[in-house]
């Protein structure tokens, strides 16, 4: 057997399955987005000459959802990175019960999103939920957290931040642990205070971890589905509907598979744009630390 053949064969089954669940779907949806396939066509696919894409461009609901999804993603990811960094610094500090603290703070991340979305639905309940009970104690009237179209998206962000901050913190904790103690001590000997150490040592060395967390959270948040589907169903008045939810509704409620595929592909294109833009800004802001 020629060298390398065995290694290639070992990778083959996994690569085939990966192609089946990643590449084939993308190809299939790119194709389907050019077809009319709905109850009107009896669910058979008929080429409709790009009509789906034209419809997408003029679809106010798609663009509204795109804006809402982006808003959700940006706000929640920024909050998660900031809080995650703080949490990671706290979790790194030595002390009794540190291992337990790490585990317990990780719990929200480990639980199914649907389960916790349900929990938050009760917390936000108007007028009986615990949050309104708390407001009641302060003498403030009950608030419709999930029924006010202007603010309900904020509370989907809050639920997402609660669930995913621990994950970000854990990633950053790994980064913190990779920084040799001697570096910190040497900077300390030079008289740097806690804030200066953070700025001049910790953050620069944490950069790869921060960017990985940012990239991962950004793509996941742009595909938010479980949370809004269970927490608000996209309401009120569509104010929390995400692109993924819209694609889902097109397929499973309106039974328009062709257009659903178009929404998915449209989302994919926007996702690529957002990620490239993020990477571009990233690179632009780091001209001096591009390694050869």
């Amino acid at each position: 057997m020629s060298p390398g053949l065995l290694e290639g064969l070992l990778m083959l089954p996994a690569l085939l399955l990966l192609a089946l669940v990643f590449l084939w779907p993308l190809g299939a949806m790119a194709w389907l987005s050019g077809q009319a396939s709905s109850v009107l066509t009896g669910l058979t696919a008929l080429p409709n000459g790009g009509a789906n894409w034209l419809r997408l461009l003029g679809d106010g609901r798609f663009w509204q959802d795109a804006g809402q999804t982006l808003r959700f993603a940006l706000v929640s990811v920024v909050l998660e990175l900031l809080l995650g960094l703080g949490l990671a610094l706290l979790l790194q500090r030595p002390g009794r019960g540190r291992a337990w603290l790490r585990t317990l703070t990780l719990l929200p991340w480990a639980l199914p999103t649907t389960v916790m979305a349900l929990g938050w639905r009760w917390i936000y309940n108007d007028p009986f939920g615990p949050l309104n009970a708390l407001l009641g104690l302060l003498g403030i009237g009950p608030y419709g957290f999930l029924s006010n179209p202007a603010t309900s998206w904020l509370f989907t962000v809050l639920a997402d931040v609660w669930k995913t901050t621990p994950f970000v913190a854990l990633l950053l904790l790994a980064g913190l642990q990779s920084i040799p103690l001697e570096l910190r001590e040497s900077l300390e000997l030079e008289g740097a205070g806690r804030w200066q150490r953070l700025r001049h040592l910790t953050l620069p060395l944490l950069l790869p971890y921060l960017s990985l967390a940012l990239l991962f959270r950004l793509t996941q948040a742009l595909g938010v589905f479980d949370l809004v589907q269970v927490l608000t169903g996209g309401g009120p008045a569509g104010s929390t509907e995400s692109l993924a939810l819209y694609a889902y509704l097109n397929a499973m409620r309106f039974l328009d598979f062709g257009y659903s595929a178009t929404v998915v592909m449209g989302t994919f294109v926007l996702l690529l744009l957002a990620v490239s833009l993020a990477l571009l800004l990233w690179r632009r802001s780091q001209p001096h630390r591009r390694p050869a």
Partner: peptide
């Protein structure tokens, strides 16, 4: 690994 898997649901349903 970064790809939001929810975007694949429709094609996987076809599968």
């Amino acid at each position: 690994a970064l790809f939001p898997t929810v975007l694949l649901f429709l094609a996987l349903l076809g599968l």
